[in-house]
Nucleic acid binder design. Structure first.
Length: 654
DNA sequence: ATAATAACGAGA
DNA sequence: CTCGTTATTATC
């Protein structure tokens, strides 16, 4: 028998033991999302193990596949084909195999869809390189900073001992979260177990990377992110799979990292929409880690300055416990928050008035600058929401009550003030008396320029879009940043002005309040203890109240209560089914939905498409996913023409 | 995609 | 009833 090249069929013999391999084939059709059995030729006996990537002939063509297991007998009544080829070392572990199946089932997707997210493309050169020896065991965790959290100490102890502690962590303002997270990872490693940490973006990843290196030394962890080249990505991923490193940090796909003997799963800024995977089956990284924690018994840390209703639901169900700083700590380290709704007067300084700065904001920033501290100014993303101006002479349209900028939330909606929310029904241009307005885009660039004039002599730095600053020095400067791009200031900011309140809050989005508070808290957390935060909104708004009191738990509890009342996720589970009307109707009609299912819609969602919502009580979520999966399998089996997209608990519900 | 197979219809 | 063609369906 030849061992290289093509082996002729006549000479092939099955492996002596466990000659059958059950294989998941890499084809996207949902009705083929089940194992197929192949004979392992004796020549591939050593290479074909559980988790091995293989090439198989499937319906006449060569496709990739993944070996689930080797068996001694076949379940298949017909004749088995031989595996054509084995490709490299195993890429699935028993644990990730279970995880991929569970994620596929929960989000009504297929196994190989999830494998594509969790297993990077193979890079043969990276695989053949000699792996460095595994690092020696990690010393027991040294001093840590979890003492200011009730139950912080015991959570860390549980992680070190390998107990399945699960916590939702609302970090205190100003918290050095990369350091706290590194301490959690340290506890897991010191206990002889592994850890996975997911963060929203590359900037957070860089901070955590630094904190872990300083805590554990080099070579203890790898960072996985989308911007790595294929070779480096596969090399780092392999280091985790081979057990050379026991800690993996990264952006959302790292939730699937093949770390053995998991001791801790953690996610930072869990409410960030960057944790939503944009590829099928659209699983959110927080929810993947929750599932993985349940499957493995690994400890779970769901963290952020703010808290989502989804995270609060874990606490409310008694599944996870609270990890929050006491009021005393928050008072000690938190900023002082004021709202311009309390003092809506526009700054008298003409330059500040031109920059549309309320008096309180201007005075606060001026004081911080004169104390030698940087000031953070959070502004809406460019084009995020258009402001309005006079159609004739382009004079900015301002609120008659507080002089805040006016904006229209929809095509024919009455314009309203972005600061105080008052509708401006009978607006008149102060310079020409005209009554008609048009949209103008005011972005970070224009704001920076105007702010510069309002504070003569001050340095102005901008961070946002494709030019994001990681840090700024602890010297007086105005730092204009869009949400999510706020640089960390050395020693903390003296003050922060949050000027995008109404842009965020006026969106017709279920999560507008929650998302606004999250962005505010992320910015306010960068302010030094007792620094000032001025928020451009009315103090009576619940999100503003939660910021003033620094009460992420209260806000999340209220948000969860509202979702409960409205029967929205996470109180219920919903599936958004979208596609051409005929296809959507066909899928929903053919689905054997649980009796509790409620069909909402359909409504038009695009030029040729419509969207329909299916809603069930949380307990029937698995049944809904299964029914949708069976129905879409049926459609793909009978070659139904148009594909439909199914997204569970979509972020955009309206 | 492709091969096996079921279904169908024309001509003997 | 057979042969050749087309529609269907399973894909190991």
């Amino acid at each position: 028998m030849t061992t290289r090249g093509k082996t002729s069929a006549a000479t092939k013999v099955p492996a002596a033991v466990l000659p059958v391999a059950s294989v998941m084939v890499d084809v996207p059709l949902p009705h083929l999302d089940r194992p197929f059995e192949y004979l392992v030729p004796a020549s591939l006996d050593d290479a074909v193990r559980p988790g091995t990537r293989v090439r198989v002939r499937f319906a006449g063509r060569l496709v990739d596949g993944f070996v689930l297991q080797r068996r001694d007998v076949s379940d298949h009544a017909g004749k088995l084909a031989y595996l054509e080829r084995a490709v490299g070392e195993p890429v699935l572990t028993p644990e990730t195999t279970t995880l991929f199946r569970a994620v596929a089932d929960r989000w009504a997707g297929s196994f190989v869809d999830v494998v594509r997210l969790g297993v990077p493309p193979r890079h043969a050169v990276a695989e053949s390189q000699v792996a460095p020896a595994a690092a020696p065991p990690v010393d027991a965790a040294a001093a840590h900073g979890w003492g200011s959290y009730r139950a912080g100490e015991s959570f860390l102890a549980a992680v070190a001992e390998g107990r399945p502690a699960r916590a939702v962590w609302s970090a205190a303002p100003g918290e050095d979260w990369p350091q706290r997270t590194a301490e959690g990872v340290h506890a897991a490693l010191a206990g002889g177990r592994g850890a996975v940490v997911v963060v929203p973006d590359a900037r957070d990843l860089a901070r955590l990377d630094l904190a872990l290196t300083s805590r554990l030394g080099p070579g203890r962890h790898v960072a996985l992110s989308a911007d790595l080249g294929p070779a480096e990505r596969y090399r780092r991923w392999l280091a985790a799979k081979r057990g050379t490193v026991k800690a993996v940090i990264g952006t959302r796909a790292a939730a699937y990292a093949p770390v053995q003997a998991l001791g801790l799963l953690a996610i930072w800024d869990e409410g960030d929409d960057l944790h939503d995977e944009p590829r099928a089956p659209y699983a959110n990284a927080r929810d993947v880690l929750v599932l993985r924690s349940a499957l493995t018994g690994a400890a779970l840390l769901v963290g952020g300055f703010a808290r989502s209703a989804e995270a609060q639901a874990l606490v409310a169900a008694g599944w996870a416990h609270d990890l929050v700083a006491g009021r005393e700590t928050v008072r000690h380290v938190g900023p002082r928050v004021g709202a311009t709704g309390d003092d809506a007067e526009l700054a008298r300084d003409p330059a500040a008035a031109a920059a549309r700065l309320p008096s309180l904001a201007w005075r606060t920033a001026k004081a911080a600058l004169s104390e030698g501290a940087p000031v953070l100014v959070q502004v809406p993303r460019r084009g995020y929401v258009p402001s309005l101006a006079c159609v004739r002479d382009r004079t900015p349209a301002r609120c008659s009550a507080c002089a805040g900028p006016l904006a229209a939330s929809g095509q024919n909606a009455t314009p309203a003030c972005r600061w105080c929310g008052r509708p401006a029904a009978d607006w008149a241009c102060p310079s020409c008396g005209g009554h008609r307005m048009r949209a103008v885009v005011v972005g970070a660039g224009r704001t920076a320029e105007e702010l510069g004039r309002a504070f003569p002599g001050a340095t102005v730095r901008t961070s946002g879009g494709d030019r994001v600053l990681a840090t700024v020095p602890g010297e007086p400067a105005l730092v204009v940043a869009t949400p999510g791009a706020e640089p960390v200031a050395e020693g903390g900011y003296g003050a922060a002005l949050l000027l995008d309140g109404w842009a965020l809050l006026s969106r017709a989005d279920l999560r507008a309040g929650e998302e606004t508070l999250r962005r505010w808290m992320n910015a306010a957390a960068l302010v030094r203890p007792h620094g000032r935060v001025i928020v451009g909104a009315d103090a009576s708004i619940p999100a503003v109240q939660a910021l003033i009191r620094w009460d992420p738990v209260g806000a999340a509890t209220r948000e969860l209560g509202e979702r409960d009342t409205l029967d929205f996720p996470p109180a219920s589970r919903m599936a958004a089914v979208s596609g051409p009307p005929a296809a959507v109707g066909d899928l929903v009609r053919s689905a054997d939905l649980p009796p509790s299912a409620e069909v909402i819609g359909p409504v038009p969602s695009g030029p040729e498409t419509e969207r329909l919502l299916l809603r069930v009580p949380r307990a029937d979520g698995a049944a809904l996913a299964a029914a949708v999966k069976v129905a879409s399998s049926g459609r793909s089996a009978r070659k139904a023409a148009d594909a439909v997209r199914v997204v569970f608990d979509p972020r955009e519900l309206i």
